[in-house]
């Protein structure tokens, strides 16, 4: 147990460092998140009421796409240079490594988005009541996005142009998280109870946390054969 824990910590440290090094996925998804959200006022017009209405959905959808953008490199870089074979042979087995890599993906790409989201809420004229729920729902929801997305990344790891297929595989599975993430923020803005939405969102995340690593690990084993 301790050995696998140590491996997890070192994999997380390594991946986060890689994600934030020059040309890593962390800075790029953060810039994508920022730029893509700012496109919407140009597209739909700068009227404050319109922006208020669409703010939760826009921020959530763009966060989801930012997560998706960085997913195809989750295992691919390690697969190409052979370090994934090494990690699979580690005494702890593949499962802790997979969990660590997913957590590292979340820390290096989604956590910055979560922390930046209030600023984008401000730009999108989100009402004051929505901010706490925006950060909370993104924090819980993006965790599910990373864990579900890992399955798609693992299934497409050996494909040269897996990115498009990855989005076809993963996006349908993202829809429930998106629904409850956004309805929770809408409820908070309207002054309604946010607990049911947050509870359902958390339930989806918990299912993803359980199923994601198992499915990802078996898909990676398949690719490494």
């Amino acid at each position: 147990m301790n050995a696998s824990f140590a491996i997890m910590i070192s994999v997380i440290m390594r991946d986060v460092r890689l994600g934030w090094s020059q040309g890593g996925t962390g800075t790029m998804s953060l810039s994508f998140f920022f730029i893509a959200v700012t496109l919407f006022p140009f597209g739909v017009g700068p009227e404050p009421q319109v922006l208020t209405r669409i703010a939760p959905g826009v921020i959530w959808v763009v966060a989801l796409l930012a997560c998706l953008l960085s997913l195809d490199r989750l295992y691919q870089a390690d697969y190409e240079d052979g370090s994934l074979d090494d990690l699979a042979l580690s005494p702890a087995g593949l499962l802790p490594v997979v969990i660590a890599k997913i957590l590292a993906h979340w820390i290096s790409t989604s956590l910055p988005l979560v922390l930046l989201s209030p600023l984008l809420g401000l730009l999108m004229n989100l009402p004051a009541e929505g901010y706490v729920q925006l950060v909370l729902s993104l924090a819980i929801g993006t965790l599910a996005l990373s864990f579900i997305g890992s399955i798609g990344a693992a299934l497409t790891v050996a494909m040269r142009r897996g990115g498009v297929l990855l989005s076809l595989l993963v996006l349908p599975l993202y829809i429930p998280s998106l629904i409850f993430g956004v309805t929770g923020i809408d409820a908070a803005i309207m002054g309604l109870d946010v607990l049911p939405h947050t509870a359902l969102l958390s339930a989806i995340t918990l299912v993803a946390v359980v199923l994601g690593p198992i499915a990802s690990a078996s898909a990676i084993r398949l690719a490494l054969e």
Partner: peptide, 24 residues
């Protein structure tokens, strides 16, 4: 159906598709 078409090795494609089907 896309994952069946995306992989050349049929045995592997079948198992990858099976993992996806169970998740879905």
């Amino acid at each position: 159906m896309a994952i069946w078409q995306a992989m050349d090795d049929e045995e592997k494609a079948g198992r990858a598709a099976a993992i996806l089907a169970l998740v879905g």
